[in-house]
Simulated scan of single mutants.
Amino acid sequence: MSLPTSQPDPAPADAGPTPAPHPDTAPPDGAFPRRPSLARAAAPLVEALVADAEALRLTVFTGPNGARMVDAGITAPGGLEAGRRIAEICLGGLGRVALAPSERFAPWGTLASVSTCDPVLACLGSQYAGWSLAAGDFFALGSGPGRATAAVEPLFEDLGYRERGERVALVLETASVPPAAVVEEIAARCGVAGRDITLILTPTSSLAGTVQIVARVLEVALHKAHALHFPLAHIVDGVGAAPIPPPSPDFLTAMGRTNDATLYGGDVHLFVRGTAAAAQDLARRLPSGASRDHGRPFAEIFAGYECDFYKVDPLLFSPARVTVSALDHGVSFTAGGFDGALIARSFGG
């Protein structure tokens, strides 16, 4: 499971007051620019993933109600390249994910780096794991362009965006095949038939699941910026990177490592419009170090809260280091920092 970004933005009762609205509240032009179609941009990536399934060590099969299922780690082995391509599908076809060597956290020498041509739409409109899907014992967080077709989350009102796709693709963080009731809910919410749905299944403990979760490092920063009431229309561009941990067959360990990759090793650079003071304030409040829960491995934090995500300080879920550049003033502000020792402890070094 990725960072629990499906929780509501306001902090729980024990986490202190909800952050005050940001002082710089109006977009420069009053609205977002015209947006591309997430469904259309992601469709070729989905079809290419299916066409290359054998080479990527994936299994494609027909699930309940005729939905197309892509097993990326439940029984199929999958791999790093599958995870990289799935992460680009999560971004709605508007971003690129690369696996790059780095000595920053040696011996954990590979970073997942993320860039997009529309960070707000790609990350919050598509990649954000914001759709909770449950039936019986099954639960998964859904991400990908299909979220914008359903638009069941209040976030889409803030984005001013809704998709009208004839085909729906979602990535589910799950170790089991979704039942018919989940497929039926997706079909009803999106207004499509079951045969027009593609569900890509990525367990947290798999290689593909690990990569696609770590590749959310930029999305996590944008989600927290939104929680801090920074105007989304002011965010022009951004890039991010985080180290890829070794997966673990133990779910709690695997989840802890993918969270720690961002919380203690994530690096994000945002380019924003607005005042220099607003950019500086965002840089100060954005890193994970601003949280009261910062400083321990996430698995330890999570266990200490009796495995209840909603007791964890929501301000924790953000990159370790953040740089914010104010485009209108030519100045940049950096806050936070990496914790290589904690990364090594978490990753099993």
Rank of each mutant, 00 (worst) to 15 (best):
T59G: 13
S206K: 14
Y161D: 01
S113V: 13
S248G: 08
A31K: 12
G209I: 06
P319G: 07
P145T: 04
A299Q: 10
A225G: 04
A39V: 01
D339F: 08
P36E: 06
G240S: 03
L252K: 15
G93P: 02
P19R: 11
E184N: 06
F105L: 09
A215L: 05
A208P: 06
P297W: 09
F338C: 07
V331K: 15
A148Y: 09
T174C: 07
P23I: 01
A181R: 12
A283P: 03
A277K: 11
C307E: 13
A341E: 15
P23Q: 03
P8K: 09
I235M: 03
P12Q: 15
C90Y: 11
F230D: 01
H234V: 06
V70I: 09
R40D: 06
V331R: 09
S115W: 10
G63K: 08
G93E: 01
A193W: 10
A43I: 02
Y305K: 15
A48S: 09
P179E: 03
P44W: 06
L252Y: 13
A326E: 00
P231L: 01
T262C: 14
H223D: 10
A283R: 07
R104C: 09
H22F: 09
P101C: 06
F251Y: 14
D137E: 15
P245C: 11
G92Y: 05
P231I: 04
A326R: 05
G256N: 02
S37F: 01
A208W: 11
A140C: 03
P119S: 11
T275K: 11
D293V: 07
F317T: 05
S102W: 03
V272F: 03
G63P: 03
E153N: 13
G238S: 11
T253Q: 13
F230I: 05
T253N: 09
G266H: 04
G330T: 02
F338P: 08
V211C: 14
D313I: 07
